[in-house]
Simulated assay, not measured.
Amino acid sequence: MALSLLCFVLIATFLFMQTLADTSCTDCFVQSHASFYPNSEENGTDTGACGFGSFGATINGGDVSAASSLYRDGVGCGACYQVRCTNSVYCSGNGVTVVLTDQGSGDNTDFILSQRAFSGMAQSKDAATSLLALGVVNIEYRRVSCSYPNKNITIKIDESSSNPHYLAFVLWFQQGKRDITAVQLCETQNFVCKLLDRDHGAVWTSTSPPSGPLTLRMLFSTEDGEDTRIVPVNNIPENWKAGDTYDSGVQVDQ
């Protein structure tokens, strides 16, 4: 009898712990607040802390946002979030998907949305006007995969670069639900690699970069510490120039 009772207790404990594991998810919504850029155009800013430049104002159709703690010293740049306000009078159930392109904090807010994105949480144009009048709204958010149909990860050489002495670049169209946590620059011929510095935001830099055609190795990491290395199909040419963009030839689905 005692043995049967002990088995029952062990099974019940296991099922309880399994239930706890199943209910703790990374896809759950987090409660917070959001405001919007009050003095901006409808889209985002082209001087954001992520270093995306004018691309950061128009990516994702202009549905972009600054973030405070989610910026994570630049690691959060390029991440996508589903953000929806919770006022049932004005807000839609789906909300809006935004890309983080800047750092900023407001009145206890996690997000400072572009006006386009802030309005995109509303049920209608009239409701959007009412939301903008409120200025700050209660929201809930969760991390989601970034998706850019027919777009590969793209390497944008920063205008401050000078071949062959200094190379700085940002990665456009970061896809999936992973963070880019490290980047190596490799000589294509002998694959000698150099670990790059995160200068600020999403800007990666190297003084005295390797010579010849160059290959990147990017480390994509999940929130639970799972790492995946991605090597682009296409190379950065030997005669790379400041301001140019180069298609990596790869997409990341997860």
Rank of each mutant, 00 (worst) to 15 (best):
G176C: 05
F169N: 11
I157F: 03
A168R: 12
V170I: 14
N152G: 06
E159Q: 14
R143W: 00
E159V: 13
Y141V: 06
T154P: 12
N152M: 02
I153E: 08
S147N: 13
L171R: 04
V137E: 00
F169Y: 10
Q174F: 03
V144R: 06
A168G: 14
Q175H: 01
I155M: 14
P149M: 04
D158E: 14
T154A: 12
I157D: 09
F173M: 02
R143G: 01
P164M: 05
E159R: 13
L171A: 04
R143S: 11
L167M: 14
Y141N: 06
L167R: 09
S160Q: 12
I155Q: 10
V170R: 13
E159I: 12
H165V: 09
V144N: 01
K156F: 08
H165S: 15
A168W: 02
V170Y: 09
S162W: 00
R142E: 05
G135P: 01
S160Y: 05
Y141G: 02
N163S: 11
I153A: 05
G176A: 02
S161K: 05
P149A: 07
W172H: 15
Y148T: 02
S147V: 13
F173W: 12
I155L: 15
S162A: 14
P164Y: 03
V136L: 00
F169W: 05
S145Y: 03
V137M: 00
T154V: 12
N163F: 05
C146H: 02
G176T: 02
L167C: 09
V144I: 09
V170G: 11
P164T: 02
W172C: 07
L134D: 10
S161G: 08
V137R: 02
D158K: 14
E140T: 11
E140R: 12
K151I: 07
W172P: 03
S161H: 07
I157L: 10
S147R: 11
I153K: 01
R142D: 04
N150R: 10
V144Y: 00
N138H: 11
V170A: 15
S147T: 13
N150K: 12
P164F: 03
Y141F: 12
G176N: 00
V137A: 00
V136R: 13
L171Q: 02
S160H: 03
R143M: 09
G135L: 03
C146F: 00
G135C: 03
S162P: 08
R143H: 10
E159A: 14
S162M: 11
T154Y: 09
V170D: 13
A133Y: 07
G176Q: 04
